[in-house]
Simulated assay, not measured.
Amino acid sequence: MQTENRFFDDFVKFMNGAAGTMAGVGREAGESVREHAKGLIGGLDFVSREEFEVVKAMAAAARDENDALKARIEALEAAAKPARAPKPAAPAI
């Protein structure tokens, strides 16, 4: 036997509305936190992975060029040094 009780119907409608409202508030809060975090992180000096890889490759190329120049300088210095001539003997008195 089913009885009609408006109180329970109204209460269920109220709870459904409150649950929907709370879900909306949760979504809004999540979006707000996400946007705030993006703002904080966006203000920092982070680089993308692609930029990092480019700089890393440039540093490796500069290091190789530096090593080649160092070897060239050492070779030029070695060629510029005069061969050591024997010192003349001191005159006997």
Rank of each mutant, 00 (worst) to 15 (best):
M1L: 02
M1S: 03
Q2P: 00
T3A: 07
T3R: 11
T3E: 15
T3C: 08
N5V: 03
R6N: 15
R6A: 15
R6M: 13
F7I: 12
F7T: 12
F8L: 14
F8D: 11
F8R: 09
D9E: 04
D9I: 03
D10H: 10
D10I: 13
V12S: 00
V12T: 01
V12I: 06
K13Q: 04
K13I: 00
K13C: 02
K13H: 02
F14M: 01
M15I: 08
N16G: 05
N16V: 05
A18T: 02
A18G: 03
A19G: 02
A19P: 00
G20A: 04
G20E: 01
M22G: 02
M22Y: 05
M22D: 04
A23V: 07
A23P: 04
G24T: 04
G24P: 02
G24A: 04
G24R: 03
V25N: 05
G26Q: 11
G26M: 08
R27C: 06
A29H: 13
G30V: 09
G30Q: 11
E31H: 13
E31L: 15
S32R: 08
S32L: 06
S32Q: 04
V33C: 06
V33R: 13
V33L: 15
R34G: 10
H36N: 11
A37E: 08
A37Y: 14
K38D: 05
K38W: 04
K38N: 10
G39E: 09
I41C: 07
G42N: 09
G42R: 08
G42S: 11
G42V: 08
G43R: 10
D45L: 08
D45G: 05
F46M: 06
R49W: 12
R49H: 10
E50W: 06
E51A: 09
F52Q: 10
F52C: 10
E53D: 11
V54W: 06
K56I: 06
K56H: 10
A57K: 15
A57E: 12
M58P: 10
M58E: 15
M58V: 14
A59E: 12
A59L: 13
A59K: 12
A59R: 15
A60K: 08
A61C: 10
A62C: 14
A62F: 12
D64F: 02
D64I: 03
D64Y: 03
E65L: 08
E65D: 15
N66F: 01
D67S: 00
D67Q: 01
A68P: 00
L69M: 06
K70I: 01
K70P: 00
A71H: 00
A71M: 00
R72N: 05
R72D: 07
R72L: 09
I73M: 01
E74T: 00
E74S: 01
E74L: 01
E74M: 02
A75Q: 06
A75N: 03
A75K: 04
E77A: 09
A78F: 03
A78Q: 04
A78C: 02
A78W: 00
A80W: 11
A80M: 13
A80R: 11
K81F: 02
K81L: 07
P82W: 01
A83C: 03
A83R: 04
A83E: 09
R84A: 06
R84V: 05
P86V: 12
P86C: 06
P86N: 08
P88K: 09
P88Y: 06
A89T: 14
A89F: 11
A90P: 03
P91Y: 05
P91E: 09
A92S: 07
I93V: 10
